[in-house]
C-alpha cells in the first residue's frame, strides 16, 4: 500500500493568526531565532492499488475541491516511498 501526503498551507498573503501566536510564544519558552511561523495541515492518504497518474489526478482533484479551500490555501501532493 502506498502513501500519498497532501500538505495544505494558507497562501503567503493570507494572515495566519495561529502561526503568529505560536511564533510569539517561542521566545518566552526559550526558543530564540524564529522570525516567522506558518501553520498548516498535513493529510496522509493510504492508497489502495498503484499510485499511477490516474490515481494522482484523482487525489489532486480531491485536494483542490475538498482538502484545501483554494481561495485561501495552497496544497502540495507528494508520494511517499513504499515501505
Amino acid at each position: 500500500m502506498a502513501r500519498v501526503v497532501v500538505d495544505v498551507m494558507l497562501k503567503p498573503e493570507i494572515l495566519d493568526p495561529q502561526g503568529q501566536a505560536v511564533q510569539r510564544a517561542l521566545p518566552r519558552l526559550g526558543f530564540q531565532g524564529i522570525s516567522d511561523v506558518r501553520q498548516g495541515k498535513r493529510f496522509e492518504l493510504e492508497v489502495d492499488g498503484p499510485v499511477d497518474d490516474a490515481a494522482l489526478a484523482r487525489i489532486h482533484e480531491m485536494a483542490e475541491t475538498f482538502l484545501a479551500n483554494t481561495v485561501i490555501e495552497d496544497f502540495v501532493v507528494k508520494v511517499e516511498e513504499e515501505k
Partner: peptide, 17 residues
C-alpha cells in the same frame, strides 16, 4: 455559502484567536 462558492471569499480564524 463561501465554501460552496455561491458567495466569494472565505472565513479565517478571528485575528485575536
Amino acid at each position: 455559502l463561501t465554501e460552496t462558492h455561491l458567495l466569494p471569499g472565505a472565513m479565517l480564524r478571528n485575528n485575536h484567536l
